[in-house]
Design a protein around this nucleic acid. Structure first.
Length: 653
RNA sequence: GGCGGGAUAGCUCAGUUGGCUAGAGCACACGGUUCAUACCCGUGGUGUCGAGGGUUCAAAUCCCCCUCCCGCUACCA
């Protein structure tokens, strides 16, 4: 009988820098899912990789004084080594600079153009270089990039567009008839209500503003922009060929069973990608799961805060499987998970060291102490065994159920419930008491046999999540991994097997203080690495705007304004409404700076005001001018004030 | 502003189609035990189940309203 196939992909990681633990989480999550699928007997294909094109990489490479290719080779290598460190069992690590991928992307682009799903137009708008995105003026936040908050420049470029509107109805239909397509379901509504139902704008799919990308082969000015390039990896990685010479892998594994991605890129995977596939007349993936984020306790990790946690640092402190356990266990299904050092140490000590490690340790110790390590099934049963046996036999089913629903954390919990039950069983049976009575020898053998059997089964189930630990436990027990199909009856552990003589500590208990010291030792290093860019007074280069004449300049009237009162604008997140005294008049000015200044701070400041700006309503409130601010690369704002005391109304010229 | 989600023990969260004294883990306290990594087992407690109102024999669970948080989205001169 042909095995059922299962094809899972992660998002491909952008090669702009080292991936932090949040990125790593996705790879580990995916790995656990595919390992379990293999365990269930599926013929599995697991693909991950890197997204390596774009202006940001072009710039980073230039900064480093190397070619983009050299740069991405380095970062992709780093990402791959972390994925390997974490024991992710991918079948292919695709890179968007792989030749086979590039060739197919060009073919896809050309075909879509030839069948008029892509057309040539031009794009006009505000461009954010770091994000490589165009925005309309109305999309900007305080005139800044809505994604990263940095400065945008007006730009216009010739570009190719993908007709999305043509396929909207089909996509809506598909989503409605396939409720499992977008997971978790709450995300489905967001996609529907915010994008599909209001109507889609055609998507810009090429760029002329940078060169580091896959060239459009019939129009050399253009490179393929991220969407068609990156998303295609899911099929090109299977050896898809547009001309019909696809590899067997493609025929076997497409459509994908699951695209595992972060919730932030759900839109691309549930709208743009399906439409691309429809246009190519290819089947759609069966499911897209937008997983939540893994956050650090004191706010989102950021490099500038110096609190970024990297997988390899965590591994150096806790070990690979402990890190896998943390990320899988702490991540709930729908909400963001939070990681703190306290929590990591607590999990390490209570779950891994106490519950699991100590269980294995005490069981092996007793086997050696009482029977020289030989585990014998003497079959002297007592009623107290029943509960352990039935729980052991139920656990595989419970784990399977959870895994089928992608409830990874719950599945792991079920395995640990079994381990806890084993600990309880030891207390119930009290082997050390049995050992004192020669007549109870067979009973003692049975008790230890039951323990080894249950632990062996639990350890086998653990393989998908903690592969090294699983193998380690089984090796110490002198056993090998039990297949799922062999878990229906109790007592498959071979009687007479000898366990290891000296149990190896699986997880050492850690002291929070010591861990924090280690972290301290790691972090300053990080900060030092990043300080050059952070501390050599950062400079900002903006794209030059069009030259203006003196007359143009003189059209604008700037004056000093004194803020005499300030209120929050109701029902708005960012707006403050100030009464600004300019000479003898008072203007009402609304500004998007609530996140940077409190209303109390505003009052009394003498600031630079553009006074002859045409009044407009913001959030329903009239604004008669503009307060000028300086803004840094992180989007922090600072009001412009005069260097020496100046009266309200003084002209700035 | 629109749409969606959430508010449950000190902390992180479960609570299925409304039904017995509201649960788990961790932490805490006490007791037991000693095979084991001072570990394991047992017992215990407080919870106005965000506020208020309603439906019902019965609501954390359904309805209304309010407050606060979060996500997506729009506006943000």
């Amino acid at each position: 009988m042909e095995k059922k196939t299962y094809y899972l992909t992660t998002a491909i990681a952008y090669t702009s820098g080292k991936p932090h633990i949040g990125n790593t989480y996705e790879a580990v999550l995916a790995d656990s899912i595919v390992r379990f699928k293999r365990y269930q007997g599926f013929d599995v294909r697991f693909q991950t990789g890197t997204d390596e094109h774009g202006q940001k990489i072009e710039l980073k490479a230039a900064e480093a004084g190397i070619t983009p290719k050299e740069y991405v080779d380095q970062v992709a290598g780093e990402i791959k080594s972390i994925w390997d460190l974490m024991n992710t069992s991918y079948d292919r690590f695709i890179r968007t600079t792989d030749k086979d991928h590039e060739k197919q992307v060009q073919k896809i682009f050309r075909k879509l153009y030839e069948q008029d799903d892509i057309y040539k137009g031009h794009y006009e708008g505000m461009y954010c270089t770091p994000c490589e995105s165009f925005f309309t003026n109305s999309q900007l936040v305080d005139g800044k990039c809505p994604d990263c908050g940095r400065e945008c420049q007006p730009a216009k470029e010739e570009a190719y567009f993908l007709r999305l509107s043509k396929y909207t109805d089909r996509l809506i239909e598909h989503i409605n008839t396939h409720p499992e397509f977008i997971q978790p379901e709450s995300r489905k509504n967001e996609m529907m209500n915010n994008f599909l139902l209001p109507g889609l704008q055609d998507l810009c799919v090429s760029r002329t503003s940078f060169k580091w990308g896959i060239p459009v082969d019939f129009d050399e000015q253009h490179v393929v922009y991220v969407w068609i390039d990156a998303l295609s990896n899911y099929i090109t990685g299977l050896g898809f060929d547009l001309d019909g010479n696809s590899d067997d892998l493609y025929k076997k594994f497409w459509p994908a069973d699951l695209h595992l991605i972060g919730k932030d890129i759900l839109r691309f995977h549930t709208i743009y990608w399906p439409i691309m596939l429809m246009a190519l007349n290819l089947p759609l993936p069966k499911q897209v799961f937008g997983h939540p984020w893994l956050l650090q306790g004191d706010g989102k990790m950021s490099k500038s805060k110096g609190n970024v946690i990297y997988a390899d640092d965590l591994v150096s402190i806790f070990g690979v499987d402990a890190v896998r356990y943390f990320v899988l266990h702490e991540m709930p299904f729908e909400n963001d998970g939070i990681i703190t050092w306290d929590l990591l140490v607590e999990r390490m000590n209570s779950d891994l060291a106490n519950t699991l490690g100590n269980l294995v340790n005490r069981t092996i110790s007793m086997s050696n102490k009482y029977f020289d390590g030989v585990v014998t099934n003497a079959k002297v049963k007592e009623p107290v065994d029943e509960e352990l046996i039935s729980l052991t036999l139920e656990t595989p089913k419970k784990v399977e159920e959870k895994m089928d629903k992608l409830r990874i954390a719950d599945a792991i919990t079920d395995i640990f419930v079994l381990f806890k039950r084993c600990n309880k069983y030891i207390d119930e049976t009290m082997p050390w008491v049995l050992a004192k009575d020669e007549e109870k020898k067979s009973r003692l053998e049975t008790v230890l046999y039951n323990l080894v059997e249950s632990i062996s089964l639990g350890a086998s189930l653990l393989e998908s999540f903690m592969p090294e630990t699983s193998a380690n436990i089984l090796a110490q027990l002198g056993d090998t991994k039990r297949e799922l199909s062999d878990m229906k009856t109790y007592g498959k552990y071979i009687s007479g097997t000898k366990v290891v003589e000296k149990p190896e500590i699986l997880f050492a208990r850690l002291d929070l203080k010591e861990v924090l010291e280690k972290v301290e030792a790691l972090m300053p290093e990080k900060k030092r690495e990043e300080k050059p860019s952070e501390h050599t007074e950062p400079i900002m280069d903006l794209e030059a705007k069009e030259e203006i004449t003196y007359e143009d300049f003189m059209k604008m009237q700037f004056q000093i304004g004194e803020i005499i009162s300030c209120e929050e604008v109701p029902k708005s997140k960012k707006l403050l409404c100030s009464q600004v005294k300019i000479g003898s008049q008072v203007k009402q000015i609304v500004s998007g700076i609530k996140q940077h200044y409190t209303k109390e701070e505003m009052v009394g400041k003498k600031v630079m005001v553009l006074v002859n700006l045409k009044p407009a309503k913001l959030a329903g409130v009239l604004s008669e001018g503009m307060l000028l601010c300086a803004e840094d690369a992180e989007g922090k704002l600072a009001l412009m004030t005069a260097e020496k005391p100046m009266p309200a109304g003084a002209e700035i010229c």
